[in-house]
Design a protein around this nucleic acid. Structure first.
Length: 174
DNA sequence: ACGATGATGAAC
DNA sequence: TTCATCATCGTA
């Protein structure tokens, strides 16, 4: 079993999508080279009131993708050197996205994009077809007892929103 | 604990 | 146009 996730998968409540992204495969293709890595850690950014989200200060040129259709990549540059990879969720007009924070053998959102050579060239591209970057279900089931949740990382500025348990990750397998 | 390093958004 | 901030990471 090996299928690309479709628009209907992403156009749903973000927390549900986030949980279900664990165990799916992020697939990167550049020419003949193809790499697939299982997603192990994600964070949800939901709605216009979530102060940790770029969308909390309204629609801008940078964050406009978050307000758009589900299933598109939202990739932005931060700290002067890092690219962050997000997939847009929920319906058109409602700002939400999921940060891909970890994949197998790679922890940290900036390390993923560095390893897979992901930058602004993929920003706004569709994740729903075979192109440069998409997500596949390869039949891996992650038992719910293996899924942990916690606070999002690096959002201490977000007031009460910093405490929302909107990070989901697979308990370290050993 | 802190510096790297530059785009972004808000203030002026 | 200027300025503080930032969904981080490597080094210490």
């Amino acid at each position: 079993m090996r299928k690309i996730l479709r628009g209907e998968f992403f156009n749903r409540p973000t927390l549900k999508v986030a949980r279900e992204l664990l165990g799916k495969f992020l697939v990167r293709k550049q020419g003949r080279k193809m790499v697939a890595l299982m997603i192990t850690d994600v964070e949800a950014y939901i709605g216009h009131r979530d102060r940790a989200s770029h969308a909390s200060r309204g629609k801008t040129a940078r964050n406009a993708l978050m307000f758009g259709q589900a299933g598109y990549w939202y990739i932005y540059f931060t700290y002067g050197m890092h690219w962050m990879l997000n997939i847009v969720t929920e319906g058109n007009g409602y700002p939400a996205a999921i940060l891909i924070r970890g994949v197998q053998n790679i922890s940290g959102p900036a390390r993923i994009t560095k390893f897979l050579k992901i930058d602004k060239k993929l920003n706004g591209k569709s994740a729903l077809r075979v192109s440069g970057l998409w997500i596949e279900d390869r039949g891996v089931k992650v038992a719910s007892r293996m899924i942990k949740k916690g606070k999002r990382v690096g959002v201490d500025y977000a007031g009460e929103w910093k405490n929302r348990p909107w990070r989901f990750f697979i308990n370290s397998l050993v």
